[in-house]
Amino acid sequence: MGSVAHAHPPAHGHAHAEHHHHEESFVSKYIFSQDHKMISKQYLVTAIIMAWVAVVMSIMFRLQLAWPGEGFAFTNFFLGDKWAPGGVLSPDMYLALVTIHGTIMVFFVLTGGLSGTFANLLIPFQVWCTRYGERFLEHVVVLVLLREQCAHDRLAIC
């Protein structure tokens, strides 16, 4: 049931407020966090890391396109002698780089990173305005019991 059932109704807000101020362990605060703000940060930082992977890839294939067949220590540093002998990108790796660059940018940065960060940050803040966990069961519960839940919480139009 989790946070939805326990989300404090506005009228009783103060009674429950204390309950939320207990100290959290590192794991529950930063890793398996149920807090939408932390989930949003996790998405954002992951996306930034993935974006860097994709940017470095793009620089490698851009170097090849601008100066075809020339060797670059930059390319060799990341790909090693197997895929970039003498720093010259191999045709197979060229195709791999454009493929993974596209995949990472489209799915991991601009879908996961963008929606994941801002939907988690903004939807609870701008709409629900209360604690927002995300557990699988919770989805089911919300879908099945929404009317009672909303009546209970005196939240808006359901």
Partner: peptide, 13 residues
Amino acid sequence: LNYIVTVLNLRTL
């Protein structure tokens, strides 16, 4: 699913 449910059903007063 989470976002949809929240927006449709859990808006504040």
